[in-house]
């Protein structure tokens, strides 16, 4: 896959630092699944975290903290050996006992990072535009949406207060800043009214999440607003 549009260094840094919210983090994780270059960048930022951890001024622990840690270990070690072996075996077997590839409605394979998510049905939100709510298992508050937009159609129009993360899964769209193909990720910042239009050669499916609030504009925007709970 020839990826031309990547997350910003700041987003990759925040993913590594653990400060990117769950929705955008899932969109970026979906990008990483197909982008070795960005995976390496995240590994670099994790190494930055390691160096910063080395250099941080230590905060003394409570006097009995280490003794408490040893007691916790003792409690776990007694009788936990068998459970641990079973867990290790289960972990080793995991890659083979792979989940069957889930499909999006329409037979499109779901990207690996979304396999544990609950994918809602496609809902009509405008002519040529359907959306599906994605629930992140450990963070029901995360706002993550699949959009499915027909050829030549506009993506739901909106102005931003925050940053919108969009990863292209199928098809392509074009806006003022370029053309976006499968594997590409765009970050649109607030203050920019942008208008992506799906290219004419087919429908486009993308995964989108927003950090911060969003002000929808236009009739579609007002229609979609209650749906995406923004």
């Amino acid at each position: 896959m020839n990826i031309r549009h990547h997350p910003t260094d700041e987003s990759l840094m925040r993913l590594a630092a653990g400060s990117l919210p769950a929705g955008p983090a899932m969109v970026v994780a979906t990008h990483l699944a197909g982008c070795p270059q960005c995976r390496e960048r995240v590994a670099e930022f994790e190494a930055v975290g390691g160096v910063l951890l080395e250099k941080i001024a230590p905060v003394p622990m409570a006097p009995d903290a280490f003794a408490a840690a040893l007691r916790a270990i003792d409690a776990e070690e007694t009788g936990a050996v068998a459970a641990k072996a079973a867990a290790a075996k289960a972990a080793a077997d995991k890659p083979r006992a792979r989940r069957s590839p889930a499909m999006l409605p329409g037979g499109i394979p779901l990207p690996e990072p979304l396999r544990d998510c609950q994918i809602g049905p496609w809902r009509w939100i405008g002519i040529g535009v359907r959306a599906s709510a994605v629930k992140v298992p450990d963070d029901p508050g995360a706002r993550l949406t699949l959009l499915r937009v027909g050829p030549g159609r506009k993506l739901p129009e909106h102005g931003h207060f925050g940053t919108e993360f969009t990863q292209i899964l199928v098809g392509s769209f074009t806006d003022e800043f370029g053309r976006y193909m499968p594997g590409d990720l765009t970050e649109m910042n607030h203050d920019i009214e942008h208008q992506p239009i799906v290219d004419l050669d087919g429908e486009c499916i993308c995964l989108a999440a927003l950090e911060g609030g969003m002000r929808m504009t236009g009739p579609f925007g007002r229609l979609i607003q209650p749906f995406v709970r923004l």
Binding site: A43, E46, A47, G49, G50, V51, L52, E54
Partner: peptide, 9 residues
Amino acid sequence: AGASTWIFT
């Protein structure tokens, strides 16, 4: 990953 990086993650 080095020890510090691993523990950081």
